[in-house]
Nucleic acid binder design. Structure first.
Length: 357
DNA sequence: CATACGTGGGG
DNA sequence: TCCCCAAGTAT
């Protein structure tokens, strides 16, 4: 064990120096070795986007955000609706709400400079234990213990830990801490995560090319495939709902901004019923002659499956909705919608296009 | 400690 | 088709 605590991090860094993935928010190891560090704003933005989200999904969003808002001050000055619209499609929308809150705190209370300690970072909105440690290590080169899903998996295998997650969290964090070096902590953290993402993968790990194979207890025991163990998940129920899609004679669409709290909080959407296991009583948002669409939207969220029926109507310029507001056709971008709402729009457009004027 | 919270890709 | 999972956080 004592030996592994020195050899494993050394092998890991050696591997990272030649195999680090090229990512837009990353300082290449050769530069990092010379003391170059990433812009804390970009490190923070990338880490928030990467929470429970794949690198592939994040790339285009990171490019769009940093182009539109190059600094934390620029982001802090943005309109809420613009930020939510730019985040649309990336999921976990509380991240976008907290992103904006955090940017405004940093801009107003910290003069635009991110705190450089784990505790200081941890106090900011949307920054939890993982993200605080990641920013402290990557942007400020502090020897923080960075533990994400990758690190948990690598540690569980390296030390052949059979305790299921999430119970094993504390134990795996302790093990990760033993391997965290005092220097190059940012590179070390990214190295473990890269290893987990590309070699020590959840399924079919590529142990044959792993730089830590000589240290890996699970490989020796033949248990790598089965680790980390996880407590079984609950089945997802099916929920039902109705959404109303209204077009005014000038082409405007009836939309509403959803409440800040809860599912898709703060995002644009079509007015409709709530979503429940028995279909709620539909209450139209405006008086109109409704037509039921033949198809339905099927969408799966984290904890339930949704089947969303659609009702469509055309209304005149004098129609007054009981909820939501009309958005001019020129101001409406389907890309501003969360995916389930965009699916609904796509379905309406498809069915309407099949009919003659 | 458990639950709510998105989405897209891979097997 | 279906299940798993991904650089987690807030409550």
């Amino acid at each position: 064990m004592r030996d592994l605590e020195k050899t494993a991090p050394a092998r890991l860094l050696e591997w990272y120096d030649s195999h680090a993935r090229d990512l837009p928010w990353r300082i290449p190891p050769k530069q990092a070795l010379n003391g170059v560090r990433g812009d804390p704003y970009r490190v923070w933005l990338s880490e928030v986007m990467l929470q429970q989200t794949t690198v592939a999904a994040v790339r285009s969003y990171f490019a769009a955000f940093t182009t539109r808002w190059p600094t934390v001050q620029a982001l802090a000055a943005a309109d809420d609706a613009d930020v939510m619209g730019e985040w649309a499609g990336l999921g976990y929308y509380a991240r976008a709400r907290n992103l904006l809150k955090c940017a405004r705190v940093v801009a107003s209370d910290y003069d635009g400079v991110f705190p450089d300690t784990v505790d200081g970072l941890r106090a900011l909105p949307g920054i939890g234990p993982y993200t605080a440690a990641a920013i402290a290590a990557i942007a400020f080169d502090r020897p923080a213990v960075v533990v994400d899903g990758n690190v948990e998996r690598v540690m569980a295998r390296l030390f052949d830990v059979h305790t299921p997650l999430p119970s094993a969290k504390a134990e795996l964090t302790d093990l990760a801490g033993r391997l965290t070096p005092d220097t190059r902590a940012g590179c070390h953290a990214q190295a473990v995560m890269d290893l987990g993402a590309t070699i020590c993968t959840p399924r079919n790990p590529a142990c044959g090319i792993c730089p830590l194979i000589a240290d890996c207890a699970a490989k020796a025991a033949g248990t790598a495939q089965d680790l980390p163990r996880k407590t079984p998940k609950k089945p997802k129920p099916i929920r039902f709902g109705v959404a109303y899609i209204v077009r005014r004679s000038d082409g405007a669409w009836l939309l509403e901004t959803r409440p800040e709290r809860g599912l898709l909080g703060g995002m644009l959407g079509w007015p409709g019923t709530g979503w429940a296991e028995t279909l709620p009583d539909p209450v139209p948002p405006i008086a109109a002659d409704w037509r039921d669409l033949s198809g339905e939207v099927r969408h799966t969220f984290t904890h339930f499956h949704l089947r969303l029926a659609l009702k469509v109507a055309a209304v005149g310029m004098d129609a007054r909705p009981s909820r939501g507001a009309f958005v001019a056709a020129t101001d409406f971008r389907p890309a501003d919608l969360p995916t389930v709402m965009r699916k609904a729009f796509d379905l309406v457009r498809t069915e309407v296009n099949q009919e003659p004027e």
